[in-house]
């Protein structure tokens, strides 16, 4: 519950001082403190990217290899081996797959990453008084950068298949923002909870695998057979986000209710995340 310094920035243009006074620990103060430390956040993200891209020969390839390979596998299975339902909704299928897969890999990587974001940096968390939220944000933003860097692969396939692009493509930034906020919310919950209850990590991994098939990544919700489950997709916040990512190329994917519910859930999870993180921080610092 460390909060913004009563004096602002110290003599050396740095951030100095703090108080644990409960009347100074509201979410706004915490947010301002994170903002004060944005430069450090940037340092951490740069370091992550450096480790990922400049220190390994195949740096960039690793970012796209897995989603690309898996997309090709699914493409083969569902265009050559099994009938995947009415192709009207999902053609060109590889573009449909990749647009979902890349967003899913960002989600999946961020969730598994945030569970380690405090534990993996235990030494740093114990020795520096940066706002603890920074460790969570850093993981999500590093993964977001990787997501952006992986987009050229999707664009390459789009240039090859030349699907019709409508102006709903403008929803894309909204989709990005929504997924980002959702991830921050989940991250702020999962990072401290994993420190206190280590088993959470395993449970979440299983949930993620199930969620992958329970979200319309490989298939369209419109492809019949799932009508009775429509309520489920409406409740699944990822479904609405995938809608927004895809609607520019697959106009039939958009469902207003799904998107609305996604937005509401995202904001809700974000608020809960802020609350839970602030509540658990004190205990986390003792246990880590």
């Amino acid at each position: 519950m460390t909060t913004g310094s009563p004096r602002g920035v110290s003599l050396h243009g740095r951030i100095g001082g703090f108080t644990t006074d409960p009347s100074h620990v509201g979410p706004i103060v915490r947010a301002r403190r994170v903002w004060d430390y944005r430069r450090i956040l940037w340092v951490l993200i740069k370091r992550d990217l450096k480790v990922r891209y400049s220190d390994s020969v195949l740096g960039y390839v690793w970012t796209v290899l897995e989603p690309l390979l898996m997309s090709l596998v699914y493409w083969f299975i569902f265009t050559k081996l099994f009938f995947r339902g009415d192709p009207r909704y999902t053609n060109p299928y590889i573009v449909f797959l990749l647009s979902g897969q890349l967003a899913w890999y960002w989600f999946n990587g961020s969730i598994t990453g945030t569970m380690k974001s405090l534990l993996g940096e235990a030494q740093m968390v114990r020795s520096t008084n940066v706002p603890r939220e920074l460790w969570v944000l850093r993981t999500i933003m590093s993964k977001a950068t990787e997501f952006i860097f992986s987009l050229p692969v999707l664009i390459a396939f789009m240039l090859y298949y030349r699907p019709h692009i409508n102006r709903e493509i403008l929803y894309w930034p909204l989709a990005f923002l929504l997924e980002w906020i959702l991830l921050v919310g989940f991250g702020l919950i999962l990072a401290p909870v994993t420190v206190l209850v280590r088993d959470v990590d395993r449970v979440v991994r299983i949930v993620l695998r199930v969620l992958f098939y329970a979200s319309p990544v490989l298939y369209s919700v419109n492809q019949g057979r799932v009508e009775k489950l429509a309520w489920f997709y409406t409740l699944n916040p990822i479904a609405g986000i995938l809608d927004l990512f895809r609607v520019g190329i697959f106009p039939l994917e958009m469902d207003r209710n799904r998107v609305m519910v996604s937005c509401i859930e995202t904001v809700l999870i974000f608020v809960v995340g802020i609350f839970v993180f602030a509540r658990l921080e004190r205990q986390v610092l003792k246990e880590i």
């Binding site: 110290s10 003599l11 001082g17 703090f18 644990t20 968390v125 114990r126 610092l285």
Partner: peptide, 13 residues
């Protein structure tokens, strides 16, 4: 790097 369970700590530098 630790937060108190009771009372408050204020550091002004």
């Amino acid at each position: 790097v630790l937060l108190p369970d009771e009372g408050r700590v204020t550091v002004r530098d």
